[in-house]
Write a protein that binds this DNA or RNA. Structure first.
Lengths: 192, 192
DNA sequence: ACCTGAACACCGTTCAAGT
DNA sequence: ACCTGAACACCGTTCAAGT
């Protein structure tokens, strides 16, 4: 297949953008190295000049998308910061459902996404006054819950009353954490 | 390929057992229709006589494995029943991690697994005295959390301190539900 | 009724070659 | 430096044929 006359040169960015578009629009099944090449009017094997294999491409894609979790606001009461983090993650997941599905089933991608995503949440929980061990466990509780929710929403593709359910869950979890805090005689809620 | 001399006749059960063994031992990547046939000493295409396609095979496998969630004990305090349900689900998932990963990424399989798995949990939560709407939302909270946990455990394949984190999460969720119950002036905890 | 085997349209990846 | 194209070992699925 001869190169298209008007083709711009390939770059990592063009490949990543095209790959994300394929995943978002047509599902993960439509992201193959061959189709990615074809989508850019280039020999299927040209992709291998920029990424050593498909795994590496997915790793980059995951990292780039999850960087957005870094923007979550870091001021205000811890309860509110936890809510904001969870809502941001949920929104990101609903924007790229097909990618999120891949990430969760893929050890490699999980290890890229998790530390990036969790950092802001951990900061919020440290501000609650829970001890270090409880903070770590609370991070897992919330991350695991939101992951599970998002996968359920994505897999079922039915979204009607899920929002009420989501807000209910967050408030139950936060109440539970507040009980812990009271029991351990920690300083008043919201303190820094 | 001629049929093996000592071969028993193929049955749905033999195919399902062999398929689950392939998934458990070598991962989902190793479950192909062709390898399944080969594992049973039969032409790869023989599988299509029993299952119309791979999706149908996976659906059956999922349904069969999740039936075990029906055995969860249905007596005692609701808090304890919720814990038992969650622990049973977690154990099942850790026995068949590769299948669980597939299930969660697969709309079709989710719709088979979810109603089977959730039924006993819903019964436990109805016994708590929460109103019908809260019961439904609490089911989602717990199912989503355990799904997320299990996927995290499976994807990371690191299990050390996860148990403490799991028990912490359950107790936080249960405390949060108890707060709800107190606020709504419901009958005392554990009533039927 | 139960299984086989060729065929088709796909994959990811390697490698030698072209410009 | 950047891209091509043939080749290899895989997929799922269809279909006509064998016993």
């Amino acid at each position: 297949m001869p190169r298209r006359a008007n083709a711009e040169p390939l770059t990592e960015q063009r490949l990543l953008t095209a790959a994300l578009a394929l995943v978002d629009e047509r599902g993960l099944g439509s992201l193959s190295m061959r189709k990615l090449g074809a989508a850019l009017g280039v020999d299927p094997m040209a992709v291998y000049y920029y990424f050593p294999n498909k795994q590496a491409l997915l790793r980059r894609l995951t990292g780039d998308v999850f960087q957005r979790m870094r923007d979550v606001d870091r001021s205000g009461a811890w309860q509110r910061r936890v809510q904001t983090w969870a809502r941001t993650y949920r929104r990101l997941a609903l924007e790229h459902p097909n990618l999120v599905i891949e990430i969760v089933a893929n050890t490699d991608a999980v290890m890229v996404a998790v530390p990036i995503a969790n950092e802001a949440l951990e900061a919020a929980l440290r501000a609650s006054g829970l001890d270090a061990e409880a903070v770590e466990m609370a991070v897992y509780l919330i991350v695991d819950y939101v992951n599970g929710l998002v996968l359920g929403e994505v897999a079922m593709r039915q979204r009607e009353e899920e929002s009420a359910s989501f807000e209910f869950a967050l408030s139950v979890i936060i109440s539970g954490l507040e009980s812990r805090l009271r029991e351990s005689g920690a300083p008043p809620v919201g303190s820094l």
